[in-house]
């Protein structure tokens, strides 16, 4: 099984919290589309619960989160945790925005797989997702 399936990667892009800077999220959404992925763009001002429920219903392979307001430590680990408890433990979580290097370890520990700061080329992010998503 599998060889004849048309596997299109599905990625959910969302901005948790109140930060409204969505330039990065929109650019990534377009970039991943151009890399052949289906991007479910969820937009702004979402709670971790809303993001996780959407990720489950959309059965995505990866979730991409962005925050620039400094709320990442409160929001990203919570989302990973909720994904795990709701049956989305195989969903890859990648994040971006303004994240100080000293927080990388905490986020990785919490289950965030990829952290992409400003200036990361989109093909690099696309490649990371392609190589790290899990078969469900």
């Amino acid at each position: 099984m599998g060889s004849t399936e048309l596997k299109t990667i599905r990625v959910l892009i969302a901005k948790p919290g109140l930060d409204g800077h969505d330039r990065g999220a929109k650019v990534i959404a377009r970039g991943l589309k151009d890399a052949g992925m289906e991007v479910i763009y969820l937009g702004l001002r979402l709670t971790p619960e809303q993001i996780v429920e959407a990720a489950i219903q959309e059965d995505v392979d990866a979730v991409g989160l962005s925050s620039l307001s400094g709320a990442h430590l409160a929001l990203f680990p919570k989302i990973v945790e909720l994904l795990r408890s709701k049956g989305g433990e195989k969903i890859l979580v990648v994040v971006g925005g303004i994240i100080p290097k000293k927080d990388f370890a905490v986020l990785k520990e919490a289950g965030v797989s990829g952290i992409f700061g400003p200036g990361t080329p989109i093909p690099e992010i696309a490649k990371f997702i392609q190589e790290n998503i899990q078969e469900k």
């Binding site: 919290g17 109140l18 930060d19 409204g20 001002r45 709670t47 307001s69």
Partner: peptide, 17 residues
Amino acid sequence: LPTQEGYDSDHTLSAGE
């Protein structure tokens, strides 16, 4: 941000902000 968007500090969406 909560003050900018009309949420009190104890609102769910203010968590972490």
